[in-house]
Design a protein around this nucleic acid. Structure first.
Lengths: 248, 248
DNA sequence: AAGTGGTCTAGACCACGTA
DNA sequence: ACGTGGTCTAGACCACTTG
Protein backbone atom coordinates (compact mmCIF):
# COMPACT_ATOMS: atom_id res chain seq x y z
CA UNK A 1 0.00 0.00 0.00
CA UNK A 2 1.44 3.29 -1.07
CA UNK A 3 1.08 6.26 1.19
CA UNK A 4 -0.22 9.46 -0.34
CA UNK A 5 1.39 12.60 1.01
CA UNK A 6 -0.28 15.85 0.11
CA UNK A 7 2.53 17.83 1.73
CA UNK A 8 5.78 16.17 0.77
CA UNK A 9 7.84 18.91 2.38
CA UNK A 10 9.53 17.59 5.48
CA UNK A 11 11.85 20.23 6.88
CA UNK A 12 14.40 19.03 9.40
CA UNK A 13 14.40 20.94 12.67
CA UNK A 14 17.93 22.23 12.16
CA UNK A 15 16.86 23.67 8.83
CA UNK A 16 13.98 25.51 10.48
CA UNK A 17 16.37 26.84 13.14
CA UNK A 18 18.71 27.96 10.37
CA UNK A 19 15.89 29.90 8.73
CA UNK A 20 14.90 31.49 12.05
CA UNK A 21 18.49 32.59 12.66
CA UNK A 22 18.73 33.93 9.13
CA UNK A 23 15.58 35.93 9.67
CA UNK A 24 16.93 37.34 12.93
CA UNK A 25 20.11 38.33 11.08
CA UNK A 26 18.11 39.84 8.26
CA UNK A 27 15.98 41.74 10.75
CA UNK A 28 19.14 43.20 12.26
CA UNK A 29 18.73 41.57 15.66
CA UNK A 30 22.50 40.90 15.69
CA UNK A 31 24.92 43.32 14.08
CA UNK A 32 27.96 42.38 11.97
CA UNK A 33 30.92 41.59 14.18
CA UNK A 34 28.76 41.06 17.26
CA UNK A 35 28.33 37.78 19.09
CA UNK A 36 25.07 35.92 18.75
CA UNK A 37 23.71 34.04 21.79
CA UNK A 38 25.55 30.90 22.83
CA UNK A 39 24.48 27.52 21.51
CA UNK A 40 22.85 26.67 24.83
CA UNK A 41 20.89 29.92 24.86
CA UNK A 42 19.69 29.38 21.30
CA UNK A 43 18.71 25.83 22.20
CA UNK A 44 16.53 27.15 25.03
CA UNK A 45 15.12 29.90 22.82
CA UNK A 46 14.08 27.53 20.06
CA UNK A 47 13.25 24.61 22.35
CA UNK A 48 15.62 22.15 20.70
CA UNK A 49 18.77 20.42 21.82
CA UNK A 50 22.18 22.05 21.61
CA UNK A 51 23.21 19.54 18.93
CA UNK A 52 20.41 20.68 16.67
CA UNK A 53 21.37 24.33 17.09
CA UNK A 54 24.94 23.31 16.39
CA UNK A 55 24.03 21.71 13.08
CA UNK A 56 22.16 24.86 12.04
CA UNK A 57 25.16 27.01 12.99
CA UNK A 58 27.48 24.60 11.12
CA UNK A 59 25.73 25.42 7.89
CA UNK A 60 25.68 29.16 8.51
CA UNK A 61 29.40 29.03 9.27
CA UNK A 62 29.98 27.04 6.08
CA UNK A 63 28.16 29.78 4.17
CA UNK A 64 30.43 32.41 5.74
CA UNK A 65 27.46 34.05 7.39
CA UNK A 66 28.66 33.31 10.92
CA UNK A 67 32.13 32.82 12.38
CA UNK A 68 32.98 30.59 15.33
CA UNK A 69 35.72 31.47 17.79
CA UNK A 70 36.40 28.71 20.26
CA UNK A 71 36.14 29.84 23.83
CA UNK A 72 34.60 33.16 22.83
CA UNK A 73 31.39 32.60 20.97
CA UNK A 74 29.76 32.68 17.55
CA UNK A 75 29.86 35.98 15.67
CA UNK A 76 28.12 37.58 12.72
CA UNK A 77 30.55 37.66 9.82
CA UNK A 78 31.70 41.12 8.82
CA UNK A 79 33.60 42.68 5.96
CA UNK A 80 35.27 44.94 8.53
CA UNK A 81 37.50 42.13 9.77
CA UNK A 82 41.00 42.26 8.43
CA UNK A 83 40.90 38.56 7.74
CA UNK A 84 37.69 38.50 5.73
CA UNK A 85 37.69 42.01 4.27
CA UNK A 86 38.88 40.92 0.85
CA UNK A 87 37.35 37.48 0.69
CA UNK A 88 35.67 38.23 -2.63
CA UNK A 89 38.91 39.45 -4.18
CA UNK A 90 40.21 36.67 -6.39
CA UNK A 91 43.07 38.60 -7.90
CA UNK A 92 46.69 37.66 -7.32
CA UNK A 93 49.96 38.84 -8.75
CA UNK A 94 51.69 36.48 -11.16
CA UNK A 95 54.26 35.72 -8.49
CA UNK A 96 51.42 34.32 -6.41
CA UNK A 97 51.39 37.00 -3.73
CA UNK A 98 48.10 38.32 -2.49
CA UNK A 99 48.19 42.11 -2.67
CA UNK A 100 45.55 44.51 -1.50
CA UNK A 101 44.41 47.31 -3.76
CA UNK A 102 44.01 51.03 -3.34
CA UNK A 103 40.80 52.58 -4.70
CA UNK A 104 40.71 55.71 -6.84
CA UNK A 105 37.12 56.80 -7.21
CA UNK A 106 36.29 58.56 -10.42
CA UNK A 107 32.59 59.10 -10.48
CA UNK A 108 29.61 58.89 -8.21
CA UNK A 109 26.37 59.60 -10.00
CA UNK A 110 22.84 58.48 -10.63
CA UNK A 111 21.37 56.77 -13.61
CA UNK A 112 18.64 54.48 -14.81
CA UNK A 113 18.75 50.71 -15.02
CA UNK A 114 19.14 49.29 -18.51
CA UNK A 115 17.53 45.99 -19.38
CA UNK A 116 20.48 43.83 -18.38
CA UNK A 117 21.21 45.44 -15.02
CA UNK A 118 17.51 45.59 -14.19
CA UNK A 119 17.19 41.90 -14.91
CA UNK A 120 20.21 41.03 -12.79
CA UNK A 121 19.09 43.15 -9.84
CA UNK A 122 15.45 42.20 -10.08
CA UNK A 123 14.30 45.80 -10.48
CA UNK A 124 12.26 47.47 -13.20
CA UNK A 125 14.11 48.78 -16.26
CA UNK A 126 14.52 52.53 -15.89
CA UNK A 127 14.51 52.52 -12.10
CA UNK A 128 17.00 54.76 -10.31
CA UNK A 129 20.50 53.46 -9.70
CA UNK A 130 23.53 54.74 -7.84
CA UNK A 131 26.57 54.46 -10.10
CA UNK A 132 30.10 54.29 -8.85
CA UNK A 133 33.20 54.07 -10.98
CA UNK A 134 36.69 53.50 -9.70
CA UNK A 135 40.13 52.17 -10.52
CA UNK A 136 41.91 49.69 -8.29
CA UNK A 137 45.67 50.04 -8.17
CA UNK A 138 48.11 47.44 -6.95
CA UNK A 139 51.50 48.79 -5.88
CA UNK A 140 50.56 52.03 -7.59
CA UNK A 141 49.72 50.50 -10.95
CA UNK A 142 46.10 50.52 -12.21
CA UNK A 143 44.77 47.01 -12.73
CA UNK A 144 40.97 47.04 -12.42
CA UNK A 145 38.29 49.43 -13.63
CA UNK A 146 34.97 48.95 -11.84
CA UNK A 147 31.54 50.13 -12.90
CA UNK A 148 29.32 49.49 -9.88
CA UNK A 149 25.56 49.96 -9.68
CA UNK A 150 23.01 49.58 -6.90
CA UNK A 151 19.36 50.51 -6.50
CA UNK A 152 19.53 54.20 -5.55
CA UNK A 153 17.16 53.70 -2.62
CA UNK A 154 19.76 51.57 -0.87
CA UNK A 155 22.44 54.26 -0.90
CA UNK A 156 20.78 57.38 0.42
CA UNK A 157 22.89 60.43 1.17
CA UNK A 158 26.14 58.94 0.03
CA UNK A 159 28.90 61.13 -1.31
CA UNK A 160 32.15 60.35 -3.03
CA UNK A 161 34.02 61.97 -0.14
CA UNK A 162 32.40 59.59 2.35
CA UNK A 163 33.27 56.64 0.20
CA UNK A 164 36.88 57.66 -0.27
CA UNK A 165 37.22 58.36 3.43
CA UNK A 166 35.85 54.95 4.39
CA UNK A 167 37.72 52.94 1.79
CA UNK A 168 41.07 54.67 1.85
CA UNK A 169 41.42 56.47 5.17
CA UNK A 170 39.87 53.62 7.12
CA UNK A 171 41.20 50.87 4.88
CA UNK A 172 37.80 49.38 4.32
CA UNK A 173 36.17 47.76 1.33
CA UNK A 174 33.06 48.88 -0.44
CA UNK A 175 31.26 45.95 1.17
CA UNK A 176 32.29 47.06 4.65
CA UNK A 177 30.92 50.51 3.79
CA UNK A 178 27.60 49.03 2.69
CA UNK A 179 27.53 47.07 5.92
CA UNK A 180 28.49 49.86 8.29
CA UNK A 181 26.55 52.73 6.72
CA UNK A 182 23.68 51.21 4.79
CA UNK A 183 22.75 47.95 6.52
CA UNK A 184 23.49 46.04 3.35
CA UNK A 185 25.30 42.80 4.09
CA UNK A 186 26.87 41.11 1.11
CA UNK A 187 27.14 37.39 1.70
CA UNK A 188 27.64 35.87 -1.75
CA UNK A 189 28.20 36.75 -5.38
CA UNK A 190 28.08 35.28 -8.87
CA UNK A 191 30.59 36.15 -11.55
CA UNK A 192 30.49 35.75 -15.32
CA UNK A 193 33.92 36.04 -16.86
CA UNK A 194 34.69 36.84 -20.49
CA UNK A 195 37.65 38.15 -22.44
CA UNK A 196 37.43 41.50 -24.15
CA UNK A 197 39.56 44.24 -25.70
CA UNK A 198 40.31 47.55 -24.04
CA UNK A 199 38.29 50.36 -25.60
CA UNK A 200 39.07 54.07 -25.70
CA UNK A 201 37.36 54.66 -22.36
CA UNK A 202 39.02 51.93 -20.31
CA UNK A 203 42.46 51.83 -21.94
CA UNK A 204 43.74 55.14 -20.58
CA UNK A 205 42.38 54.41 -17.13
CA UNK A 206 44.31 51.17 -16.96
CA UNK A 207 47.34 52.50 -18.79
CA UNK A 208 47.08 49.97 -21.62
CA UNK A 209 46.75 50.34 -25.36
CA UNK A 210 43.35 50.27 -27.01
CA UNK A 211 42.88 46.65 -28.08
CA UNK A 212 44.80 45.18 -25.14
CA UNK A 213 43.19 42.01 -23.75
CA UNK A 214 41.20 42.40 -20.54
CA UNK A 215 39.01 40.22 -18.39
CA UNK A 216 35.43 41.45 -18.30
CA UNK A 217 33.89 40.20 -15.07
CA UNK A 218 30.20 40.80 -14.47
CA UNK A 219 29.37 40.35 -10.81
CA UNK A 220 26.04 40.23 -9.02
CA UNK A 221 26.31 40.37 -5.24
CA UNK A 222 23.65 39.07 -2.89
CA UNK A 223 22.43 39.69 0.62
CA UNK A 224 20.35 37.32 2.76
CA UNK A 225 17.72 35.22 1.00
CA UNK A 226 19.75 35.45 -2.23
CA UNK A 227 18.49 38.92 -2.91
CA UNK A 228 20.68 40.72 -5.46
CA UNK A 229 21.72 44.18 -4.33
CA UNK A 230 24.78 45.15 -6.33
CA UNK A 231 25.81 44.78 -9.95
CA UNK A 232 29.27 45.52 -11.21
CA UNK A 233 31.33 45.17 -14.32
CA UNK A 234 35.06 44.88 -13.77
CA UNK A 235 37.70 45.21 -16.45
CA UNK A 236 40.94 43.60 -15.38
CA UNK A 237 44.38 43.98 -16.90
CA UNK A 238 45.93 40.55 -16.43
CA UNK A 239 49.39 41.46 -17.66
CA UNK A 240 50.70 41.12 -14.10
CA UNK A 241 47.80 39.47 -12.27
CA UNK A 242 45.45 36.53 -12.61
CA UNK A 243 41.99 35.63 -11.42
CA UNK A 244 42.09 32.61 -9.12
CA UNK A 245 39.48 29.90 -8.97
CA UNK A 246 39.15 26.63 -7.04
CA UNK A 247 37.11 23.71 -8.31
CA UNK A 248 36.00 20.66 -6.42
CA UNK B 1 33.55 1.91 23.85
CA UNK B 2 36.64 3.31 22.30
CA UNK B 3 40.16 2.17 23.25
CA UNK B 4 43.05 4.55 23.77
CA UNK B 5 45.16 4.88 20.67
CA UNK B 6 48.86 4.26 21.09
CA UNK B 7 49.77 7.25 18.93
CA UNK B 8 49.54 10.53 20.81
CA UNK B 9 47.71 12.57 18.21
CA UNK B 10 46.30 16.07 18.56
CA UNK B 11 43.95 15.37 15.68
CA UNK B 12 40.26 14.83 16.43
CA UNK B 13 39.14 11.25 15.99
CA UNK B 14 36.87 12.05 13.05
CA UNK B 15 39.82 13.67 11.31
CA UNK B 16 41.89 10.54 11.79
CA UNK B 17 39.03 8.43 10.44
CA UNK B 18 38.81 10.75 7.46
CA UNK B 19 42.50 10.24 6.74
CA UNK B 20 42.16 6.45 7.06
CA UNK B 21 39.24 6.46 4.63
CA UNK B 22 41.19 8.67 2.25
CA UNK B 23 44.10 6.26 2.38
CA UNK B 24 41.82 3.32 1.68
CA UNK B 25 40.43 5.23 -1.31
CA UNK B 26 43.90 6.14 -2.47
CA UNK B 27 44.97 2.50 -2.12
CA UNK B 28 42.11 1.47 -4.35
CA UNK B 29 40.24 -0.50 -1.70
CA UNK B 30 36.98 0.95 -3.02
CA UNK B 31 36.51 1.72 -6.69
CA UNK B 32 34.79 4.79 -8.15
CA UNK B 33 31.05 4.32 -8.26
CA UNK B 34 31.14 1.47 -5.73
CA UNK B 35 29.60 1.56 -2.27
CA UNK B 36 31.87 1.82 0.72
CA UNK B 37 30.93 -0.05 3.92
CA UNK B 38 27.97 1.26 5.88
CA UNK B 39 28.47 3.75 8.67
CA UNK B 40 27.94 1.04 11.28
CA UNK B 41 30.50 -1.23 9.65
CA UNK B 42 33.06 1.55 9.47
CA UNK B 43 32.36 2.37 13.12
CA UNK B 44 33.15 -1.23 14.06
CA UNK B 45 36.21 -1.31 11.83
CA UNK B 46 37.72 1.83 13.32
CA UNK B 47 36.40 1.26 16.84
CA UNK B 48 34.54 4.55 17.08
CA UNK B 49 30.89 5.48 17.30
CA UNK B 50 28.70 5.84 14.25
CA UNK B 51 28.42 9.57 14.88
CA UNK B 52 32.16 10.00 14.57
CA UNK B 53 32.25 8.05 11.30
CA UNK B 54 29.40 10.19 10.13
CA UNK B 55 31.29 13.41 10.76
CA UNK B 56 34.27 12.05 8.81
CA UNK B 57 31.97 11.09 5.93
CA UNK B 58 30.29 14.51 6.10
CA UNK B 59 33.56 16.17 5.23
CA UNK B 60 34.40 13.73 2.45
CA UNK B 61 30.96 14.29 0.98
CA UNK B 62 31.47 18.05 1.23
CA UNK B 63 34.73 17.63 -0.70
CA UNK B 64 32.88 15.69 -3.43
CA UNK B 65 34.97 12.62 -2.73
CA UNK B 66 32.02 10.54 -1.56
CA UNK B 67 28.32 10.67 -2.39
CA UNK B 68 25.51 9.69 -0.05
CA UNK B 69 22.30 8.07 -1.27
CA UNK B 70 19.70 7.70 1.42
CA UNK B 71 18.51 4.17 1.85
CA UNK B 72 21.24 2.79 -0.43
CA UNK B 73 24.63 3.62 1.01
CA UNK B 74 27.67 5.85 0.60
CA UNK B 75 29.50 5.70 -2.72
CA UNK B 76 32.85 6.71 -4.13
CA UNK B 77 32.33 9.75 -6.36
CA UNK B 78 32.95 9.09 -10.03
CA UNK B 79 33.32 11.16 -13.17
CA UNK B 80 31.36 8.44 -14.98
CA UNK B 81 28.08 9.57 -13.45
CA UNK B 82 25.95 11.65 -15.74
CA UNK B 83 25.27 14.07 -12.95
CA UNK B 84 28.85 14.74 -11.94
CA UNK B 85 30.65 14.12 -15.23
CA UNK B 86 31.06 17.76 -16.09
CA UNK B 87 31.32 19.20 -12.62
CA UNK B 88 34.59 20.98 -13.46
CA UNK B 89 33.11 22.58 -16.56
CA UNK B 90 32.33 26.18 -15.72
CA UNK B 91 31.37 27.25 -19.20
CA UNK B 92 27.87 28.37 -20.06
CA UNK B 93 26.29 29.89 -23.11
CA UNK B 94 25.38 33.57 -22.88
CA UNK B 95 21.72 32.61 -22.70
CA UNK B 96 22.54 30.81 -19.47
CA UNK B 97 22.04 27.27 -20.74
CA UNK B 98 24.48 24.60 -19.72
CA UNK B 99 25.67 22.81 -22.86
CA UNK B 100 27.95 19.80 -23.08
CA UNK B 101 30.85 19.83 -25.48
CA UNK B 102 32.11 17.45 -28.12
CA UNK B 103 35.87 16.76 -28.20
CA UNK B 104 37.96 16.84 -31.35
CA UNK B 105 41.39 15.48 -30.54
CA UNK B 106 44.21 16.88 -32.57
CA UNK B 107 47.43 15.55 -31.17
CA UNK B 108 48.61 12.92 -28.76
CA UNK B 109 52.36 13.02 -28.29
CA UNK B 110 55.19 13.02 -25.83
CA UNK B 111 57.34 15.87 -24.68
CA UNK B 112 59.46 17.18 -21.88
CA UNK B 113 58.33 19.33 -18.98
CA UNK B 114 59.32 22.98 -19.18
CA UNK B 115 60.06 24.89 -16.00
CA UNK B 116 56.50 26.11 -15.43
CA UNK B 117 54.72 22.81 -16.00
CA UNK B 118 57.37 20.94 -13.98
CA UNK B 119 56.85 23.32 -11.10
CA UNK B 120 53.06 23.00 -11.23
CA UNK B 121 53.13 19.21 -11.41
CA UNK B 122 55.93 18.79 -8.89
CA UNK B 123 58.14 16.88 -11.33
CA UNK B 124 61.68 17.60 -12.54
CA UNK B 125 62.12 19.92 -15.52
CA UNK B 126 62.75 17.83 -18.59
CA UNK B 127 60.84 14.80 -17.35
CA UNK B 128 58.62 12.95 -19.81
CA UNK B 129 55.08 14.19 -20.33
CA UNK B 130 52.09 12.96 -22.27
CA UNK B 131 50.68 15.83 -24.31
CA UNK B 132 47.12 15.98 -25.54
CA UNK B 133 45.62 18.73 -27.63
CA UNK B 134 41.98 19.07 -28.50
CA UNK B 135 39.21 21.43 -29.42
CA UNK B 136 35.89 21.47 -27.61
CA UNK B 137 32.89 22.32 -29.74
CA UNK B 138 29.50 23.45 -28.49
CA UNK B 139 26.64 22.91 -30.92
CA UNK B 140 29.23 22.32 -33.61
CA UNK B 141 31.15 25.55 -33.04
CA UNK B 142 34.70 25.45 -31.67
CA UNK B 143 34.97 27.28 -28.34
CA UNK B 144 37.91 25.87 -26.37
CA UNK B 145 41.40 24.80 -27.33
CA UNK B 146 43.05 22.60 -24.69
CA UNK B 147 46.73 21.81 -24.27
CA UNK B 148 46.81 19.05 -21.64
CA UNK B 149 49.90 17.51 -20.07
CA UNK B 150 50.44 14.71 -17.56
CA UNK B 151 53.49 12.82 -16.36
CA UNK B 152 54.03 10.20 -19.08
CA UNK B 153 54.32 7.40 -16.52
CA UNK B 154 50.68 7.88 -15.57
CA UNK B 155 49.33 7.32 -19.07
CA UNK B 156 50.99 4.15 -20.32
CA UNK B 157 49.85 2.59 -23.57
CA UNK B 158 47.31 5.26 -24.37
CA UNK B 159 46.43 6.06 -27.96
CA UNK B 160 44.41 8.80 -29.53
CA UNK B 161 41.97 6.20 -30.82
CA UNK B 162 41.30 4.96 -27.29
CA UNK B 163 40.77 8.48 -26.06
CA UNK B 164 38.38 9.40 -28.85
CA UNK B 165 36.49 6.18 -28.37
CA UNK B 166 36.07 6.76 -24.66
CA UNK B 167 35.25 10.43 -24.84
CA UNK B 168 33.02 10.49 -27.89
CA UNK B 169 31.65 7.01 -28.42
CA UNK B 170 31.04 6.44 -24.71
CA UNK B 171 30.24 10.06 -23.93
CA UNK B 172 32.82 10.26 -21.19
CA UNK B 173 35.11 13.02 -20.06
CA UNK B 174 38.87 12.93 -19.96
CA UNK B 175 38.63 12.60 -16.20
CA UNK B 176 36.38 9.55 -16.45
CA UNK B 177 38.97 8.06 -18.81
CA UNK B 178 41.76 8.68 -16.31
CA UNK B 179 39.61 7.11 -13.66
CA UNK B 180 38.48 4.04 -15.59
CA UNK B 181 41.70 3.23 -17.44
CA UNK B 182 44.56 4.69 -15.40
CA UNK B 183 43.44 4.71 -11.78
CA UNK B 184 43.85 8.48 -11.65
CA UNK B 185 41.02 10.11 -9.74
CA UNK B 186 40.74 13.84 -10.14
CA UNK B 187 39.09 15.36 -7.10
CA UNK B 188 39.96 19.07 -7.24
CA UNK B 189 41.58 21.71 -9.42
CA UNK B 190 42.97 25.22 -9.33
CA UNK B 191 42.56 27.67 -12.16
CA UNK B 192 44.41 30.86 -13.01
CA UNK B 193 42.50 32.98 -15.47
CA UNK B 194 43.93 35.71 -17.68
CA UNK B 195 42.92 37.49 -20.85
CA UNK B 196 44.97 37.05 -23.98
CA UNK B 197 44.86 37.52 -27.76
CA UNK B 198 44.42 34.70 -30.25
CA UNK B 199 47.71 33.89 -31.99
CA UNK B 200 48.26 32.28 -35.38
CA UNK B 201 48.13 28.78 -33.89
CA UNK B 202 44.94 29.06 -31.88
CA UNK B 203 42.95 31.46 -34.05
CA UNK B 204 42.22 29.03 -36.92
CA UNK B 205 41.38 26.23 -34.50
CA UNK B 206 38.74 28.37 -32.83
CA UNK B 207 37.61 30.06 -36.00
CA UNK B 208 38.47 33.55 -34.78
CA UNK B 209 40.73 36.27 -36.13
CA UNK B 210 44.28 36.60 -34.92
CA UNK B 211 44.10 39.17 -32.12
CA UNK B 212 40.63 38.17 -30.95
CA UNK B 213 40.27 38.21 -27.14
CA UNK B 214 40.38 34.82 -25.42
CA UNK B 215 40.40 33.59 -21.87
CA UNK B 216 43.63 31.79 -21.02
CA UNK B 217 42.88 29.39 -18.19
CA UNK B 218 45.75 27.48 -16.63
CA UNK B 219 44.45 24.54 -14.65
CA UNK B 220 46.22 22.17 -12.29
CA UNK B 221 44.14 19.13 -11.33
CA UNK B 222 44.73 17.12 -8.18
CA UNK B 223 44.14 13.62 -6.92
CA UNK B 224 44.03 12.50 -3.27
CA UNK B 225 46.38 14.22 -0.84
CA UNK B 226 46.45 17.29 -3.11
CA UNK B 227 48.88 15.66 -5.46
CA UNK B 228 48.94 17.45 -8.84
CA UNK B 229 48.56 15.06 -11.76
CA UNK B 230 47.36 17.09 -14.72
CA UNK B 231 48.25 20.48 -16.13
CA UNK B 232 46.29 22.15 -18.86
CA UNK B 233 46.10 25.45 -20.65
CA UNK B 234 42.70 26.28 -22.11
CA UNK B 235 42.00 29.07 -24.57
CA UNK B 236 38.35 30.01 -24.56
CA UNK B 237 36.45 32.07 -27.10
CA UNK B 238 33.93 33.93 -24.97
CA UNK B 239 32.02 35.49 -27.86
CA UNK B 240 29.07 33.20 -27.08
CA UNK B 241 30.01 31.73 -23.70
CA UNK B 242 31.17 32.81 -20.26
CA UNK B 243 33.09 31.28 -17.40
CA UNK B 244 30.94 31.02 -14.30
CA UNK B 245 32.16 31.51 -10.76
CA UNK B 246 30.47 31.56 -7.34
CA UNK B 247 31.86 33.46 -4.40
CA UNK B 248 30.91 33.21 -0.77
C1' DA C 1 10.97 -6.70 6.78
C1' DA C 2 15.58 -5.41 6.74
C1' DG C 3 19.27 -2.29 5.91
C1' DT C 4 20.93 2.23 4.87
C1' DG C 5 21.53 7.05 5.56
C1' DG C 6 19.20 11.27 8.17
C1' DT C 7 17.64 13.54 12.38
C1' DC C 8 17.44 14.45 17.22
C1' DT C 9 18.43 14.02 21.92
C1' DA C 10 21.08 14.00 26.46
C1' DG C 11 25.08 13.87 28.64
C1' DA C 12 30.10 13.65 29.27
C1' DC C 13 34.40 15.52 28.62
C1' DC C 14 38.13 18.44 26.14
C1' DA C 15 40.29 22.88 24.39
C1' DC C 16 40.36 27.65 24.45
C1' DG C 17 39.79 32.46 26.15
C1' DT C 18 38.83 35.55 29.85
C1' DA C 19 38.50 37.16 34.34
C1' DA D 1 36.82 29.15 37.89
C1' DC D 2 33.72 29.74 34.42
C1' DG D 3 31.61 30.03 29.93
C1' DT D 4 32.29 29.24 25.25
C1' DG D 5 32.72 26.25 21.23
C1' DG D 6 34.60 21.30 19.89
C1' DT D 7 34.46 16.28 20.25
C1' DC D 8 32.51 11.86 21.21
C1' DT D 9 29.24 8.60 22.66
C1' DA D 10 24.81 5.77 22.93
C1' DG D 11 20.46 5.27 21.72
C1' DA D 12 16.00 6.36 19.67
C1' DC D 13 13.37 7.16 15.87
C1' DC D 14 12.42 8.83 10.86
C1' DA D 15 12.87 8.48 5.68
C1' DC D 16 14.19 5.98 1.80
C1' DT D 17 15.38 1.79 -1.02
C1' DT D 18 15.25 -2.94 -1.95
C1' DG D 19 13.98 -7.74 -1.55
Amino acid sequence: MRKETATPSFLPLYEQIKQLILRALSDGEWQPGAAIPSEMELARRYQVSQGTVRKALDELVMDNILVRRQGKGTFVATHADDGTAYRFLRLMSLSGEQEYPHSEFIVFSRGKADAQVASRLGVSPGSALAILRRVLTFSGAPVVYDDIRLPAALLKGVSIAMIEDHVNAHKGTLYSLYEAQYQIRIIAAHERIRATLADAVVAPLLGVAVGAPLLAIERVAFTYKNQPVEWRMSYVNTARHYHFDELN
